[in-house]
């Protein structure tokens, strides 16, 4: 990773559908058999904890709710860090700032999960995933790729970040192919 400064992109308007607060109570397991609970047991839940009571990276998730894709930059050496951090691994300072990452990029490598899904994703196969080179950034970020069948997916396809809301109100993100 180089220390190149990431281009700051303009803020998007907040999405009209406001995500529920991230401190929402875990939903009860539904009575109907075969349905997934809104949240897996904590130690099977792959998604990150995001409330301010649980993490100092809560602004990242708040940013997703506002249509922003943020990470941290070290104020001392200017490095843009991924994933976001609270201490720079080079300078060992907590003097970091939140910056916007580019929300568009190109697929650098991809595959598809056709079998072997972790708990909670069994019903979501096939799932296209890949590494995306963000425009104007040295960062290559991994994520789910929406909006394309795996057989039609190609290296170099353009994608953009797409925040989404988990059933329990937490925010997360994927990539979506744009034409």
């Amino acid at each position: 990773m180089s220390g190149a400064v990431v281009e700051v992109v303009p803020r998007k308007r907040p999405r009209s559908r406001k995500a529920k607060p991230s401190t929402a109570e875990p939903a009860q397991a539904p009575a109907a058999s075969g349905d997934r609970p809104a949240r897996l047991p904590y130690l099977l839940d792959l998604y990150p904890a995001e409330s301010p009571a649980q993490t100092r990276l809560a602004p990242f998730f708040d940013g997703l709710r506002e249509g922003r894709f943020l990470t941290t930059r070290c104020r001392k050496d200017g490095r843009v860090l991924w994933p976001p951090r609270i201490v720079c691994p080079t300078c060992h300072t907590s003097d970091l700032e939140w910056v916007d990452l580019p929300q568009t990029g190109r697929i650098y490598a991809f595959s598809a999960i056709l079998a072997g899904a972790p708990s909670g994703l069994e019903g979501e196969l096939p799932r296209v995933v890949g590494l995306v080179e963000l425009d104007g950034s040295p960062l290559r970020i991994f994520g789910r790729i929406q909006g394309v069948e795996w057989a039609a997916c190609r290296i170099g396809m353009r994608v953009r970040i797409e925040p989404f809301e988990l059933p329990d109100g937490r925010a997360y993100y994927a990539f979506r192919v744009v034409s």
Binding site: L46, Y47, P48, P118, E124, F142
Partner: peptide, 10 residues
Amino acid sequence: RPWDAAHGLT
């Protein structure tokens, strides 16, 4: 786990 595996990576 929270940044790569949460997307389904194994």
